[in-house]
């Protein structure tokens, strides 16, 4: 899929009408995610009850890829157990860095598989991954995360 198709099929829709966009009252977990090179900047808020993500919302300024990724992520993990959401974080990251072939290997990504094409846009991988990093940070009670430094999905040796 070329990038135009990627934009046309999912990104534009979620960019115009992001799901679960906004704040959450009395969130149990929150985190801020930054992609300093692009300027993507999002906040993620969660309700976690008995190990289940019962509520989730995001807000911020970002490019369309990041926003669509965040929007689809919130839809995908709402109602999921924390460990299953963490499993998706790992699978999504593997997919966009090219380590997981969603067509050939077992996975739980479903619709999120449309982001597989991002692996051919190396400069945009961080945009797609940022919401997922932020989810992981929120679930592990880190207040902020970034796509640089230790968290860089493309850094040598990671």
């Amino acid at each position: 899929m070329d990038s135009k198709q990627l934009y046309q099929e999912v990104i534009l829709d979620h960019n115009r009408k992001p799901r679960n966009y906004g704040k959450l009252d009395a969130a149990t977990h929150s985190s801020e995610g930054l992609n300093p090179l692009c300027g993507d900047h999002i906040w993620l808020h969660l309700h976690v009850n008995d190990g289940t993500i019962s509520g989730i919302a995001f807000e911020g300024q970002s490019c369309a890829i990041c926003k669509a990724s965040a929007s689809m992520m919130t839809a995908a993990v709402k109602g999921k157990r924390v460990e299953d959401a963490e499993g998706l974080v790992g699978e999504f990251r593997s997919m966009v860095t090219g380590d997981l072939d969603v067509g050939a290997q077992p996975n739980h990504l479903g619709r999120l598989g449309v982001f597989a094409g991002v692996k051919d846009l190396p400069s945009r991988v961080k945009c797609a991954v940022l919401p997922w990093h932020t989810l992981h940070a929120a679930l592990t009670s880190q207040q902020t995360t970034s796509t640089e430094g230790d968290q860089d999905p493309l850094a040598p040796g990671t």
Binding site: D2, S3, Y7, C38, C63, A64, I65, S123, R124, C127
Partner: peptide, 11 residues
């Protein structure tokens, strides 16, 4: 966002 502009112009 300029990054979306850049990716699409590249196409």
């Amino acid at each position: 966002h300029p990054h979306d502009v850049g990716t699409l112009l590249d196409e």
